[in-house]
Design a protein around this nucleic acid. Structure first.
Length: 835
RNA sequence: GGGCCCGUGGCGGAAUGGUAGACGCUGCAGACUUAAAAUCUGUUGUUCGUAAGAGCGUGCCGGUUCAAGUCCGGCCGGGCCCACCA
């Protein structure tokens, strides 16, 4: 018998064409079916997909195909997060227009994704740089402005003095601009911001309810929002009318206060310092101070003594006033009172400036206040009316007294800051605002939207090309028609990714971001995207912004949804070994060769190569593999299978050559398993034989249906793959055992196998399904139902332990009583011997 | 400094408190082949033993339990996130 070897390339292309020709992935609202929205974080169109994308989209595709087979109306879209800096950098480096560069990249990446065989409804594709996308964003921004959710404020930003642009925090490395290396300046600029702080409490309360989010991400968001409760009150300045307002979460330690300190950039600091010598130098030193982790750890606590004293309004305590480098203007009120005995920073400061260290919390454990502060539990001492109280009681008491006395009040604060959305960049969505000398800030009228980017821009000057453009920014004021200028800033690119999940539901709508009825179908009040999948690196920024945006859209009447993503899965990274040649130069995995003796050498020179740590794939360490090469060599199914096989999806996945080869071998083995045994298939419609082997293989089939379904539900794709391999091994054994006899393999067994592999290896499943004689696509086949009657196992095998050691195993009827188990156990020779 | 997660063979990893190591990768031995590749078969925690078999084994110490990789307490080690946040 001759069997043709499985031609992976031809088969994968053929079935991709079939899916496309039959338009099976296009989806419409259908109220007769339950919907299921599967979404993976959309890619930035950098030009080529990387293995992280392959992992992300494979995971999503398994869920989408599985849910579709279960009968859900599945929405599984794809798009492009297309605005951003790399496009501008490419423009600067190669003189290409960012739009052209981006669109070419999209075209290339779309083809790469299609070659993975993803079940994506490409008719819903969106690119955020498309005016038809961002016009709605501009309209929403104007609604936010009306509602008071968007506002203009003066904010301190990271300013690169060489490029003349604002940098994001991530673009500041050790206090220097990432591109220019110039020391970053802190500058005050007028910026548009969104009032995410108004939503702090709702964001915090709701994130606790997102049960299908990883605990880790929920905690990260909670920490980021940073709710704290404390006391806010004012200290009087001796010899002045002014007061210093402070915030503390430890009002109980008030009697231990030995100083009051203000942030260097606190509005009162300069006045308090007066014209004392050294203040300017002190401020300069504070500004020069790095913000990196290392810098903070090494930084000495520095203070500037104003020479003034402050008194507590309720208690009359008198303490010196300092300006200190470790006080942050962005948190609380930008001023504190210091309690050296119970706060380590205050302790360090007190040691340096010889301030008193007064203990007010006692503890059973030993406290040495010469060495360090004590911040644990205990009872109040040295605190007059608070003495003897527990910390929590003391806090309540002091807040009560201050409130009665009107000298202070209990207050809830959040660490969360408003979201500054202005960027001095070209390749972003223009902010639809016009500035008029007479009318001030004028929103662009709805009829004039979208404000589109000019095509003819030059990048030869540093700074924002929109500001340099000769004509773009000059317009007439919409209200008085006098000459006016446009806002030349563009939105932060997180703006686009904050609402794209809605746009996929109604991508062609040119009057609204999304029609309400479509939003209500796909992203109803009770929940949005059932399954969102992406990297954990977006745990805070993107996922918090998108949650906020959804609530803001809801409050503007655009949607009824409160939470965009009801289910979230964060995948692990893809890692790879690293390689260096003798000179220490990093080598690509494809430049190395493993010898049989275990050594690794350079593929061309044959010189030894040092194999280094297995770390996240990165261009700089060159430990990357190109998905296009993998797909070309092994095919999409093998790549998908390997990605799903070994590591649990939430953990890091080590990419290995032997692993992908193993997956490829299994694809071929499955193909042979079916094609070489077609003649053993039972005829269609025949009742299965009732012999033991046939019953066992059917039982295995149905147990596998149940297990694989549960595994996919639980995102344990590696277990699903193991189960399928176990099942195919069982089929293999069945066929070998029955060789020579006329025992048929039930057709159902092969069909179940193919249906179970279909979400993971869709091309192979279609190919073999077709070879079994089916005219319809396996994609449209309903997921098989496990036959519970077959699964009901009537015997059970248990281990018998004596003194904690397994001495025997016994197999008993499941409904046997405990006495029967006991008798059988005691009858075992090994058990008798052990007793 | 705060928070979270994880420690199981040579490796990735399985295991509702109930036969630890499923499934794979690697290695080893063999079959087929002139040879190689591919494929197939066997084997692969560790120690002792020719073998049958026996002992030891889930980072360490203790606890709960008839029974612990799993639950509890305390250590040790590794990773991630946040952070002069008052």
């Amino acid at each position: 018998m001759t069997t043709e070897r499985y031609n992976i390339k031809a088969a994968e292309a053929k079935w991709q064409k079939s899916w496309s020709d039959q338009d099976v992935f296009t989806v419409k609202e259908d109220t007769s079916k339950e919907k299921y929205y599967v979404l993976e974080m959309f890619p930035y169109p950098s030009g080529r997909i990387h293995v992280g994308h392959v992992r992300n989209y494979t995971l999503g595709d398994v869920v989408a195909r599985y849910r579709h087979a279960l009968g859900y109306n599945v929405l599984h879209p794809m798009g492009w997060d297309a605005f951003g800096l790399p496009a501008e950098n490419a423009a600067i480096e190669r003189g290409e227009h960012p739009g052209k560069w981006t669109r070419e990249n999209i075209a290339q990446m779309r083809e790469q994704l299609k070659s993975m065989g993803l079940s994506i409804d490409w008719s819903r594709e969106v690119a955020t740089c498309d005016p038809d996308y961002y016009r709605h964003e501009q309209a929403m921004f104007l609604k936010f402005l009306e509602k008071g959710i968007a506002y203009r404020k003066e904010a301190v930003v990271n300013w690169d003095p060489v490029d003349n642009t604002v940098l994001a925090n991530e673009q500041v490395i050790d206090g220097k601009g990432w591109r220019t290396g110039a020391p970053v300046e802190r500058r005050k600029l007028n910026q548009w911001a969104l009032k995410i702080t108004d939503y702090a409490e709702e964001l915090l309360e709701d994130v606790k309810k997102l049960e299908r989010w990883p605990e880790k991400v929920r905690i990260m968001q909670e920490n980021w929002i940073g709710k704290s409760q404390g006391l806010q009150f004012k200290w009087n300045i001796i010899g002045s009318e002014d007061q210093i307002e402070v915030y503390t979460t430890r009002p109980d330690t008030l009697f231990g206060a030995s100083f009051v300190a203000l942030a260097p950039d606190h509005p009162m600091s300069a006045a308090l310092a007066g014209n004392k010598n050294g203040f300017d130098a002190f401020i300069k030193a504070c500004q020069a101070q790095g913000t990196s982790e290392a810098a903070i750890e090494q930084a000495e606590k520095l203070g500037f003594d104003t020479g003034l004293q402050a008194t507590h309004p309720l208690l009359g305590r008198e303490v010196p006033i300092y300006i200190a480098n470790f006080i942050l203007m962005d948190y609380g009120t930008g001023a504190i009172f210091g309690v050296p005995a119970h706060d380590q920073r205050d302790f360090d400061f007190a040691k340096k400036y010889n301030l008193p260290i007064q203990q007010v919390i006692s503890s059973a454990e030993e406290i040495d206040l010469n060495k360090e502060s004590y911040s644990g539990a205990g009872k109040l001492i040295n605190s007059q009316f608070l003495d003897g109280l527990e910390i929590a009681e003391a806090q309540a008491e002091i807040i009560k007294r201050c409130e009665n006395d009107n000298s202070g009040f209990g207050v809830t604060k959040y660490r969360l800051r408003d979201w500054g959305v202005s960027r001095q960049r070209y390749w972003g969505c223009p902010i639809p605002i016009i500035y008029c000398d007479d009318c001030g800030v004028v929103p662009v009228p709805a009829a004039q939207l979208p404000v589109t980017l000019p095509e003819d821009v030059s990048f030869d000057k540093p700074g924002n090309p929109l500001a340099h453009h000769p004509s773009w920014k000059h317009v007439n004021c919409p209200s008085c028609d006098k000459p006016a200028t446009r806002e030349t800033d563009t939105f932060d690119t997180f703006f686009e990714s904050s609402w794209y999940q809605f746009r996929y539901c109604d991508p062609q709508n040119d009057t609204q971001p999304i029609a309400l009825d479509k939003a209500d179908y796909w992203m109803p009040f009770g929940g949005g995207v059932e399954q969102y999948i992406g990297g954990v690196e977006h745990a805070v920024l993107h996922l918090l912004y998108a949650r906020f945006f959804t609530k803001a859209m809801r409050d503007c009447g655009i949607v009824n949804t409160s939470e965009p993503f009801t289910g979230l899965f964060t995948q692990g990274m893809v890692t790879h070994e690293t390689y260096q040649d003798e000179a220490g130069k990093w080598l690509l995995p494809s430049e190395t060769l493993k010898n049989d003796d275990g050594t690794t050498v350079h593929v061309q020179t044959g010189k030894p190569v040092t194999v280094g740590a297995t770390i996240k794939m990165s261009k700089s360490k060159k430990n990357v593999v190109d998905p296009e090469e993998i797909l070309g060599t092994y095919g999409a199914d093998a790549a998908r299978l390997f990605i799903l096989s070994d590591s649990p999806p939430e953990r890091d996945l080590e990419w290995t050559e032997s692993g992908i080869e193993g997956a490829w071998r299994y694809i071929n083995r499955l193909h042979r398993l079916i094609t070489e045994n077609m003649h053993k298939l039972s005829p269609a419609g025949a009742q299965p034989a009732e012999d033991k082997a046939t019953t066992e293989i059917l039982r295995a089939a149905h147990a596998t249906i149940k297990g694989v379904g549960a595994d996919i539900d639980n995102f344990q794709m590696n277990k699903a793959v193991a189960r399928i391999r176990e099942f195919s091994n069982a089929i293999d054994k069945f066929l070998k055992d029955s060789a020579g006899s006329d025992t048929a393999i039930p057709r159902e067994v092969f069909e179940i196998l193919l249906q179970l592999i279909a979400p993971m290896m869709p091309h192979l499943a279609e190919e073999l399904w077709h070879l079994l004689g089916h005219e319809t696509l396996i994609y449209n086949q309903m997921w098989p139902k496990a036959n519970e009657a077959l699964l009901a196992n009537d015997t059970v095998t248990i281990g018998v332990q004596v003194n904690g050691k397994v001495r025997a195993t016994i197999t008993m009827p499941k409904d046997a009583d405990s006495k029967a188990f006991e008798n059988e156990a005691l009858a075992q020779d090994t058990v008798k011997a052990a007793i």
